[in-house]
């Protein structure tokens, strides 16, 4: 009886990715509260009659019953809990959701549990499309998910001399992995200058909750600068660029808009 119970386990998870396997199966990458990142196989999930279809859709938060398998654990039942709304209506929003799950998937390691990251991702996906502009939410998520996995940036003091940063353009040292004052920046060959307003905004994102961070209005120039800074920092942490950000840039170039 105990062995039977051990073979099967239940998780609540967000779908980070999926790929087709065999005739009708799907290999799904889940990020669960209880077991962290796991790859499972959903047999027959691609058939139109499969009940597990919507539960294994990208970005879905679902409850899974899993059976331990030799290579991959097998989905024995799946129930959709919720999923972000209206993703299909905006390519930019779809790219933002993709960016959040891709970043999460690359920051977390299999075999480790990250309940705080799970809650952060769940909350952020739920808020997507609620505010008029998704960009503050995406930046808030980036700053906070990096903090949750141990890559916190201190926007108040210099990582070189430890002094408080002055109200002037300072630098993000990509090699140092922290903020640098003008005096210490020379020690880092990959330092990015950050304007005063962008620094204020980054401080706000790291200090405030999701609601107040999402409601702040900033100029397109600061939004674009902060996006560039965060993209450079995440690429430096992960040692690779994120696919969904590349597609987001392509969508913007093709449509000439930030919100298509």
């Amino acid at each position: 009886m105990t062995a039977e119970r051990d073979r099967n386990y239940r998780v609540e998870a967000i779908v980070l990715g999926r790929r087709d396997f065999g005739e009708t199966d799907r290999i799904v990458t889940l990020f669960s509260r209880e077991s962290g990142k796991i790859s499972v196989i959903a047999k027959g999930a691609r058939k139109p009659t499969a009940r597990s279809g919507p539960a294994t859709e990208y970005f879905a938060r679902s409850r899974f019953m899993l059976a331990r398998g030799r290579d991959l654990d097998v989905v024995t039942s799946a129930e959709l809990l919720d999923r972000p709304t209206n993703l299909e209506s905006s390519l930019a929003r779809l790219a933002h959701a993709s960016h959040m799950v891709e970043l999460t998937g690359k920051l977390v390691q299999e075999g480790e549990v990250y309940p705080a990251v799970y809650d952060l991702l769940h909350l952020s996906l739920r808020h997507l499309g609620v505010a008029e502009d998704d960009l503050p939410l995406v930046r808030w998520f980036e700053v906070n998910v990096l903090t949750a996995v141990g890559y916190q940036l201190d926007f108040w003091s210099c990582a070189g001399c430890q002094r408080e940063l002055g109200a002037e353009p300072n630098f993000l040292g990509l090699r140092t992995g922290g903020m640098l004052c003008p005096g210490c920046r020379t020690g880092d060959g990959q330092a990015m200058q950050i304007s005063v307003n962008a620094q204020k905004y980054l401080r706000l994102l790291s200090r405030e909750g999701i609601r107040s961070a999402s409601s702040v209005r900033i100029s397109p120039a600061v939004a674009s600068e902060v996006e560039r800074v965060m993209a450079a920092y995440t690429s430096s942490v992960l040692e690779r660029d994120l696919t969904s950000l590349r597609v987001l840039r392509e969508i913007r170039e093709q449509t000439g808009s930030y919100s298509v």
Binding site: Y58, V101, S244, V247, E250
Partner: peptide
Amino acid sequence: AISPIDGIGPG
């Protein structure tokens, strides 16, 4: 199909 997470944009 367009799928940013899989690196597929409209182009």
